[in-house]
């Protein structure tokens, strides 16, 4: 199974055509070259792929690892039996 980190690296690199090497755990949105609106788009793509729903209030992302943690947590919580 694809890990949340692998999935997010694929979504972000394909969407924004950036070098995956930029996506280190402590990379800020500025480092990655995207903004908070783009993050909603990334979360949407992850939701679609994983068939999960990330609650609105939970999308608070400062660095790449926050995004990985968020998707991983929601994925675990909403895992289908």
């Amino acid at each position: 199974m694809t890990t949340s980190k692998e999935l997010l690296i694929r979504i972000i690199t394909e969407k924004f055509e950036i070098d995956p090497q930029v996506l280190v755990p402590q990379a800020t949105l500025e480092d990655i070259g995207i903004d908070s609106l783009d993050i909603f788009d990334v979360v949407f793509a992850a939701e679609e792929e994983l068939d999960i729903k990330v609650p609105n209030d939970d999308v608070k992302i400062a660095v790449f690892q926050d995004l990985v943690d968020l998707i991983e947590r929601v994925r675990t919580e909403q895992a289908k039996p």
Binding site: L37, F40, D41, V43, F44, E47, K53
Partner: peptide, 9 residues
């Protein structure tokens, strides 16, 4: 049940 985030914009 959800739309692309950019839909409104």
């Amino acid at each position: 049940n959800r739309l692309k985030p950019f839909t409104v914009l």
